[in-house]
Simulated assay, not measured.
Amino acid sequence: MKIHHLAKSPSVLNNYLAQLRDKELQQDSMRFRRNLERIGEIISYEISKELHHKEEVVHTPLGRKSTVTLQDRIVICSVLRAGLPLHQGILNYFDWVENSFISAYRYHTSDTEFEIIVEYLASPDLDNKVLILADPMLASGHSLVATFEALSRVGLPREIHLVTAIASQEGVEYISKHFPRGTRLWVGDIDEELNDYSYIVPGLGDAGDLAFGRKLQK
């Protein structure tokens, strides 16, 4: 797996990551969602450099111009619900592509033990397409792996790009062992620690709750 760790190179992305993490600023849910959207936009621009392009001639009012445009068939998939703002940011840049949505959540069997439940999937055929799979937090990595296993039932992508704002080192290592060779991970920043409850430390908290409000616990 090739890992693109964007925070290693100073840019405006670091501003948005800092605001996401700030426990005071993140109480503004609209700003929180917008910052996730911005991160999706920034990462989308970087992904676009690695995709396949074709030569094309554009007819302007005054003449003709040779250029290159993307030729890949792309599907954006986000993990509900936390992935929606990130999905929107990616869609802002790849606004002509197909979209997929999947649910995945932790079902706790004890305080520290859980399994990943996938209950909903709406997706086009993924065969021979470029899959951009978005989830803002990559903690243990089990959710992304379970998500991809479910998606594999609707086709085999030619390329896979994973997009996340913050990851744990443990999660990165886990998905590296379970995704196909050649998968690319685009991550804002990587934190070293994962606590006993499989939350990223320092991380930022629960991205879904911060974006959309607290949910009832089952």
Rank of each mutant, 00 (worst) to 15 (best):
L126Q: 08
V163L: 10
H161T: 02
D22Y: 03
F32R: 00
E55P: 05
K23E: 14
G171D: 08
K23C: 07
E37P: 00
E98T: 00
G171I: 10
V145G: 03
F101P: 00
S168K: 13
E98K: 02
E24V: 12
L162C: 14
R38W: 08
Q27Y: 06
T109L: 13
G171Y: 04
C77A: 14
I90K: 00
F114P: 06
S66H: 12
D209R: 04
A165Y: 06
L131P: 09
S48N: 11
M1D: 08
E173L: 12
G213W: 05
H161P: 06
M137N: 05
R106N: 08
G141K: 08
H4N: 13
I190W: 11
E98M: 03
L36V: 01
Y16S: 11
V154C: 13
R153M: 07
L84K: 13
L204T: 10
I200P: 10
L25D: 07
Y120C: 08
R38I: 14
Y107G: 04
F94K: 00
A82W: 03
S152R: 14
N92G: 13
E41I: 09
R33P: 02
I160K: 01
P157K: 01
G63M: 14
V75R: 01
F94E: 00
R33Y: 01
L84S: 06
R181P: 06
L216A: 14
I116L: 08
S198F: 15
G203Q: 13
E149D: 11
V12G: 04
P180A: 07
I190T: 11
H178W: 02
V163H: 02
Y174S: 11
V187F: 09
S123V: 04
G83I: 03
K129L: 02
S44H: 05
D206P: 09
I76E: 00
L133C: 03
L144E: 01
F212D: 01
V163G: 02
R158T: 07
S78G: 15
C77N: 06
R38E: 12
W186C: 00
D191Y: 02
V130N: 00
V68K: 12
V118G: 07
N128L: 05
I74F: 05
K2F: 05
Q19A: 12
A146I: 07
L86C: 10
K218S: 11
R184S: 14
Q26I: 01
A211N: 05
L216D: 12
T147C: 12
S9N: 10
R34T: 12
L20M: 10
V187H: 06
D95A: 04
L126V: 11
D72W: 12
T112R: 13
Q26L: 03
E50N: 12
E24W: 04
H108T: 05
D209E: 14
R158Y: 09
E192H: 12
D28W: 09
L17S: 03
F179T: 03
K8P: 01
Q19Y: 08
E115R: 13
V145M: 11
S44F: 11
F32D: 00
V201G: 05
Q88N: 15
S176T: 15
K23H: 08
F32H: 00
L84V: 10
K65H: 15
N92M: 09
S176L: 15
E193H: 13
L13G: 03
L84N: 04
E170R: 13
T183Y: 03
I160D: 00
V201I: 15
S11V: 10
Y45T: 04
